[in-house]
Design a protein around this nucleic acid. Structure first.
Lengths: 207, 207
DNA sequence: GTATGACGCGAGCAATTACTCGCATACAAT
DNA sequence: ATTGTATGCGAGTAATTGCTCGCGTCATAC
């Protein structure tokens, strides 16, 4: 899969193949250093070292250190968002309860995909960087859920779709993330059952 | 209220009144700098500056920079824990639903008490420092809730108190924190109503 | 083939960092 | 008053940081 790099984060657009590979290596090295040494120890010199290039070369394309690390995060964010959207879109035609269950399973799958990076994003990184896209994704999904609830309102006992969507999305997101990272002694299937129960009970009887 | 300082975090125990006041000023300055300049910019020299003392004086009592900031966090954590415990203990004799509602109201009150610091702890600080006590507090409350659920199991439809407690505690905690920090367009009373509905629906009918 | 500019290098700089140490001062006990 | 010690100071240091700049190399256009 290709990873297009947003032009605004780059100092200049790479024209030759060589330089595009360079940008790629920088981001890969950034990710490696971030995972291996943590955020505090992720210095520009270390990234350059890991990439096997010169510190100066970093600044050919990235304006500053933050931009490099932001590119790494953006990459993960994009992949995460893509996967999640695909998984959800795949099951959108299923009826109520099955849709809920399938969505949760898909979310857990995507979250489990790259646990180390997930831990990095939610535990180590200052929210100022990762918060922007995470908040945006939350908002998008909240809107989606609110629309869904609005359409199927007759089958539920909720009064305000927007409020319920806000609560449901935060709840499911955080519980899933915590479950994956904390690895509590709860079997995966049981955990999903509980979240489904919670959701359906909250939405009210289907009658 | 007095703020006892754990001895293991100090290089030596302050004997004279003067030095006890000094430690106090260091922690206060640490808190001020942390809130004003953020975690990244919170340097030892800056803390010393804010406190109006010499950099060397910091190291009379604190072994390193981390210990200073940890003391600031510990202070907030202790206050938070105390307040929360007090609020919950106050209402423990109320019956089921009223207890749930009262607990949530108390939690929201305590969280709202010092919003800036709360934001700092959950958004800015690397979890490695704040995570230890937060996790411990989560565990303690989880155990408490699990015990409560176990005793009153006949009135609920849950099967595994430990699992349900794990889910409930994380859910309520995170929803409340997010509500306070994000300030969504949901009235406080409505938000509490929703959380109560969610909880009671999950626990099952009281019959 | 040659000229032009994209590309990459890496020594090195200015700034900041956490932290120390020798010395002056304030206090408490005698 | 004198002495022993707890306290505080602040210039100083070694290390690290993000980042620059002059120069050599290489791919591409003509």
């Amino acid at each position: 899969m290709a990873h297009p790099i947003p032009a605004k984060d780059l100092r200049k657009t790479p024209r030759q193949e060589r330089s595009r590979a360079m940008v790629e290596r920088i981001i890969a090295a950034g990710q490696a250093v971030l995972l291996r040494d943590g955020y505090e120890k992720a210095s520009t010199n270390r990234v350059a070292d890991e990439a096997g290039i010169s510190p100066g070369s970093l600044y050919q394309y990235f304006p500053d250190k933050e931009a490099i690390l932001a590119a790494v995060i953006d990459r993960y964010a994009a992949e995460f968002s893509t996967q999640l959207t695909a998984v959800l879109a795949d099951r959108l035609d299923e009826p109520g309860p099955a849709l809920v269950r399938a969505s949760f399973e898909g979310l857990l799958d995507v979250l489990t995909e790259n646990i180390e990076f997930l831990r990095l994003v939610v535990e180590v990184l200052p929210r100022s960087q990762s918060g922007s896209w995470a908040g945006a994704l939350e908002q998008r999904i909240s809107d989606l859920v609110a629309a869904y609830l609005s359409i199927n309102r007759s089958q539920t006992s909720i009064t305000d779709p927007a409020t319920s969507a806000w609560i449901l999305v935060r709840m499911v997101e955080h519980l899933s993330v915590q479950y994956v990272l904390e690895q509590p002694p709860i079997p995966r299937e049981k955990f999903i059952d509980e979240m489904v129960d919670l959701t359906l009970a909250y939405l009210g009887p289907a009658s």
